[in-house]
Design a protein around this nucleic acid. Structure first.
Lengths: 400, 400
DNA sequence: CGCATTAGTTACTTTCCGAAAGTACCTTTC
DNA sequence: GAAAGGTACTTTCGGAAAGTAACTAATGCG
């Protein structure tokens, strides 16, 4: 008898209701910045009684906090509630090739601390040991740890199945760090982690579905549908790097012509600059500087890249019709003056109608996306199942 | 205060639990063909008591049926339960250009009756009136009516926003048919309806996510993720017709080169046959006949088309990593001898690894997909919220 | 025929939500 | 300045759902 649980939403018990409603209350506060119990009740459709109970528990758990009452024209003043920004800490680590970045946020995803960890070797053990030590030396113990890595990740058990840059195969990152630190750990591909964070905390906080496109030295997409990541059974969803664009003439490493990545990655743009004999184009920042200095060839290259990215965005829009497209990586953030070209191309190539300024936006985290992303993995768990991660203490009324 | 309900799963009450568990029980039976209460309990994780209660209600509602007990090696024999195939009827209508097709299925989606309705005019009123009359003359009143139409459909209120072939704009199909027949009505784009039916009843019954690709005179995709259709806010998701393939040299109606549809639609293939001066290629069936007769040019055209479709499939696989890709339309079903080429091309172009024979399959409904699809809209509602559509009668034990 | 074994049901408990009623705190009015 | 009225929140209680424990049902085996 095969297991129907894996295919379908599981059977519900009463605790699931409680948790679902705690989540609804928490998300209502998150969405409104701060909200009184009565406002939460209106937003969620729950009764005032039920909201009151949930709030009491969430305050006891250190997730919500009461603010001073705000008098209305008439009647008893409301007591606004906000996410408790001092109660709990969340940690996230992006593991890169030569360095990893550790970030610590509050429950709203505000970045409080960012620590860079450099490593010469790419051996998994030393890197993970370094990461674990960094987490342990934090002044406050985080309630959860999110790990974002490139390559192919199996998020269920937190295994990095394959990462060519680091040369990792089947590294059990989740298990190792969980045992080493004693903190709950989530592991996810870096693009997907950033997509999820953007969906909860960034521009996507009003959108149920979102497509996230990262364009840097590699290109990848993260897909959020109904507030959850879509990974695919192999965790391979979002592999947009090798779709063919309408432009041709460039051969990709994969052997085919006109792949998105072969046209629009940092390396591709720099290689093109090299061909043209442009000086000072070691890295993309150099090329952008030259373009800003007035070099029309460099400007042309960056504009061309923006158009390529725009075409990739058009593809995502037509196929997924997301409520929001969030852009990140050097391709969107380092030279925002080309966003106009990007949006124009996306509008021209897509067959769906949309308002480009509203639909296609750069990441709200900028260069911090890389560490806010993994923290978002933990926050996703907190927002969806608040009582699981944070156990409510025998709550007590806090208002004087 | 904006409404958080639209963005997030709604707050849960007790009736939602009941319904969710009724759905889980029903789906377990559906997945296993037939299952005893004890097996359902094992599959869903629910207690035997709870399963018993749900089953009693579902039998009372005419959804489940007890079979004769089956003796095991030891102990009391199990009483298998199956979906009641004689209890309720479900109707679905595909509205086409010159004719519509009405289908009637049982609760398992077995097609019991198919009626063709021809119409000369494309006026909405007469067509819908004809449809309503056909539904009313059925020997049994269906519990729900699914409508599948081409073009742009707003499923929430059942409005056909735009259908160029029929010349419809903002036709309130759902409201009109609901008022006329008194039967609950669902309206959805035809590709998405078929995708949903395939997900519940066809090859996708074991898959939580599925990509459905229809290739006929038009090309479109339906995306099912976590057992639910992904429509996008504008209902535009799945617009794969105009993505560029690697092949060039054909200009699409949309003005660009190498669009999927310009390369692989029925019309595109026939136009190409015409250019080559092939005789007897009025329609695709003719071309296939000629190819089967040994004409190598015709064979080449069909093989080329299969490869183009394969490339489209590769795109869906890389972007969505679905558990299953289901093919339908003339492009996949009429000449299955080219499936091999299609799969080969998909494997070659996709960067994700997969077993092509298992991942890429033709629709299990064949030519009936067009009417089983809209029935699937109703069945989706039955399986997800069983007690909503079918009210349980004061149930009574049925075993002797 | 008693016994082990499995299937399913009945009786009771626990846990959740919601409605009604009560308390808190503010403004307005006389 | 005390009473009236209005809104925010809490306490009390009843209903609904699932779960546990104990029971009955049906079968095979010695």
């Amino acid at each position: 008898m095969t297991d129907a649980l894996s295919l379908h939403p599981p059977a519900r018990r009463q605790p699931a209701i409680r948790q679902g409603n705690a989540s609804a209350v928490l998300r209502a506060v998150l969405a409104h910045g701060s909200a009184a119990r009565s406002e939460i009740a209106a937003a969620t459709g729950l009764s005032a009684v039920s909201v009151g109970r949930q709030v009491t528990d969430l305050i006891g758990a250190g997730v919500l906090r009461e603010l001073s009452p705000v008098g209305a024209e008439l009647g008893r003043p409301r007591v606004p509630l906000e996410i408790d920004l001092h109660g709990h800490r969340v940690a996230g680590i992006h593991i890169g090739l030569h360095r990893s970045s550790l970030g610590v946020t509050d429950l709203r995803g505000n970045l409080l601390r960012r620590i860079e960890l450099t490593h010469d070797s790419t051996e998994p053990r030393p890197i993970l040991e370094q990461a674990a030590q960094a987490v342990e030396t934090l002044p406050e113990r985080p309630i959860g740890l999110g790990i974002a890595v490139g390559g192919w990740v199996q998020p269920i058990d937190g295994t990095v199945v394959e990462n060519d840059a680091l040369g990792w195969r089947n590294v059990e990152v989740g298990t190792l760090l969980r045992e080493r630190t004693g903190v709950p750990v989530w592991v996810e591909s870096n693009v997907r982690a950033m997509a999820l964070a953007e969906s909860w905390l960034g521009g996507g906080s009003q959108a149920a579905s979102l497509a996230y496109l990262f364009v840097g030295n590699v290109i990848g997409a993260g897909i959020v549908i109904r507030r959850a990541l879509h990974r695919g059974p192999q965790g391979a969803a979002g592999a947009i790097a090798h779709v063919p664009l309408s432009d041709r003439g460039v051969t990709c490493q994969c052997g085919r012509e006109g792949c998105f990545q072969a046209l629009a990655s940092d390396a591709a743009v720099l290689a093109r600059a090299d061909e043209l004999g442009l000086d000072g184009t070691r890295d993309l920042a150099g090329l952008i500087a030259i373009a800003r200095g007035g070099n029309t060839q460099a400007q042309g290259l960056l504009r061309r890249r923006a158009r390529h990215v725009g075409e990739g965005v058009a593809l995502l829009i037509d196929l997924l019709n997301p409520e929001l497209v969030v852009l990140a990586g050097s391709g969107a953030l380092d030279a925002p003056e080309y966003l106009k070209d990007l949006r124009q191309e996306a509008s021209a190539k897509a067959h769906t109608d949309f308002e480009a300024e509203r639909l296609i936006v750069p990441s709200s985290f900028g260069a911090d996306a890389i560490v806010v992303g993994p923290c978002g993995l933990v926050l996703d768990a907190v927002y969806q199942r608040p009582t699981e991660l944070i156990h409510p203490r025998p709550a007590r009324r806090l208002s004087a």
